[in-house]
């Protein structure tokens, strides 16, 4: 509201005061007409679908350990890669967004969600060409995740170093 000029007349009959009253009244109307939020249902769905995705990944990991000759140290990367490829296939088939409408954070938080952001953007901008379309827009949704993931990782690492150094010096 900072763009609006300051009103010098504070009387309740001034135009600005009337407008504010109308806005407040309308906010009240909106609250009365708000559709139900289903917070608990969404949380439960996110919990079990997210868990299911992790369970599938665990199964993939066990298969790789048992049949593909990987050990505990090396199995992480191929497991992630398989989950990413599965998510991209589901995105390309137009299924992943439907799963997400049901699962919410359950399908957004695991690595499959990240694969979906990248591949959906890449598909969307294919019509604008490979370089400026796919290349230029692929990180459109995933970009902020990477930026703030890196920034928060850096901040947490600094805090950890400081605490360890102070702890080591002081105690």
């Amino acid at each position: 509201m900072s763009a609006k000029p300051k009103q010098t007349d504070p009387s309740p009959h001034s135009a600005a005061a009337q407008m504010q009253a109308r806005e407040r009244e309308y906010q009240q109307l909106q609250q009365n007409n708000q559709p139900p939020q289903h917070l608990l249902r969404n949380c439960i769905n996110a919990f079990w679908t997210g868990g299911l995705i992790c369970l599938i990944a665990q199964g993939v990991q066990q298969l790789l350990l048992s049949y593909a000759g990987f050990n505990e140290q090396t199995v992480g990367a191929p497991t992630s890669a398989i989950m990413i490829v599965l998510a991209i296939i589901l995105t390309a088939l137009g299924v992943y967004d439907r799963i997400s409408q049901f699962a919410g954070a359950g399908s957004a938080v695991p690595i499959t969600g990240f694969a979906n952001t990248m591949s959906s953007a890449a598909m969307e901008y294919r019509s604008e060409g490979f370089v400026l379309g796919v290349g230029g827009n692929m990180f459109k949704v995933a970009g902020p995740v990477i930026v703030f993931g890196a920034v928060s990782g850096f901040v947490v690492a600094i805090i950890k170093v400081l605490i360890l150094e102070l702890g080591g010096a002081g105690l």
């Binding site: 969404n42 995105t91 390309a92 137009g94 992943y96 967004d97 799963i99 997400s100 409408q101 699962a103 919410g104 954070a105 399908s107 957004a108 969600g113 979906n116 952001t117 591949s119 959906s120 953007a121 598909m123 969307e124 901008y125 459109k140 949704v141």
Partner: peptide
Amino acid sequence: YPNEYGSQK
């Protein structure tokens, strides 16, 4: 968002 991006509406 992109059409196939999974955001919950």
